[in-house]
Design a protein around this nucleic acid. Structure first.
Lengths: 220, 220
DNA sequence: ACAATAATGTGAGATATCTCACATTTTTCA
DNA sequence: TGAAAAATGTGAGATATCTCACATTATTGT
């Protein structure tokens, strides 16, 4: 992570105005910083003391279980807060957050914590954000346990494919969908078998959009 | 649901003071109401216009999937908010909420919505509540997919047993743990087989607390 | 350019969990 | 108090998913 120069800073502040999140002047408490691709924003189990507002980039939120399994909990995408729960609760340790692409964040130090926690505008934004987060997580996980991978994967392919081509990293997606790598490949192979997908050099091509939709639409 | 008399109202307001949640006088906007056991507080799919703060009782939050499966998402217990997400977001439809026991709530009409959404004290409470909710749901569901029922059930029995006896309704618990009724019985039978539990008239008696702990403690 | 590392891919067998069909018991309510 | 509904219980077979061991192919760092 490194902090951007004054020039870059004002570029981003201009591009992504954030003043209306706060009723006080946030400028003195704010830095713009850049994380490299793959860099960890929060180490799992650490106690972060910075609130980030991600403005460009994508990341992954992880947690590791006692038995060694890893859950990819969320795919946070800009724009959104990170570290907000730790701001609200003292000494709450965090999940691991790792960038997927180069990522630009506004970083807000806890030196203005008091101001933040008494700011109506900010708190309301945060409430809405947290409410949506809770709703999203709930729907992801209830789906996970109500539908077999076949349906969830179909939905995920629809979401994440680009120009009719699906080419995500299996290692990531199996963690996200909560199944083993092996099983993900099984179901992908099954989709190819059924001519829903076709595996090519540059990814899996969607051959039967209709059938894929049917499978996906079993889900809410 | 019925609204309590002035006398009962002041009894509960006295017993569970709530003034310090608000920086304005909430009294004119607040009723105390009672739900019977099994009554629905929110119908699934409806658009509630009341914020509740549950002060006594227990409930269940449900959602029904397209394929007919039902997920028991949460076991809300007093004290806590309900309907807070719908307060923040216009026209958000709700999950189903049904009481498990007789339940007493403060009900706050949306006529003071503006006041609430500009009240620092209230918003901060709400943020903390929503943050905890998100954390709790995340940990429940990541565990669900990282551990077999054997471990999760052991943990759940520890939590919900009383005086060494486990006697929850299987139909509910299988929904909560996200498995089929059949499978829940299998694993309970297995626990009996292994002499961890013993099935008696009044419930499953815990016979091997140590082994149960071991199974439960695989989970974080 | 090469070694190390990560990602991908596959087979085979095990396990966790589900579906369905049906029997019994308990609870609810008209 | 009797009929209906809910809860409980069980068997048998299907399916979804996992584990492990190993081979191949990309990607990365030096």
């Amino acid at each position: 992570m490194h902090i951007l120069t004054a020039e870059e800073r004002s570029y981003y502040l201009d591009k992504y105005p954030i003043d209306d999140f706060f009723s006080f002047d946030i400028d003195p408490f704010l830095e713009v910083c850049k994380f490299d691709k793959g860099e960890w924003i929060f180490q799992e189990g650490s106690f972060p003391d910075t609130l980030y507002y991600m403005i460009e980039g994508k990341a992954k939120i992880y947690m590791t279980h006692k038995n060694g399994k890893v859950s990819l909990i969320e795919y946070p995408e800009a724009p959104r807060f990170m570290g907000e729960i730790e701001l609200l609760n003292e000494a709450r340790y965090t999940k691991g957050v790792q960038t997927v692409t180069e990522t630009i964040c506004f970083s807000i130090t806890q030196s203005c914590k008091e101001k933040l926690l008494t700011d109506v505008l900010f708190l309301r934004k945060l409430c809405v954000f947290l409410g949506e987060k809770a709703t999203k997580i709930t729907s992801k996980y209830t789906q996970n346990q109500a539908y077999p991978l076949e349906n969830r994967l179909a939905a995920f392919i629809q979401l994440s494919s680009d120009q009719g081509i699906y080419k995500e990293k299996h290692t990531e997606i199996c963690e996200y969908l909560g199944v083993s790598y092996r099983h993900l490949l099984y179901v992908l192979a099954q989709f190819c078998e059924e001519k829903i997908l076709e595996k090519k050099k540059n990814g899996y091509h969607i051959m039967n959009r209709k059938r894929l939709s049917e499978l996906a639409q079993e889900i809410q």
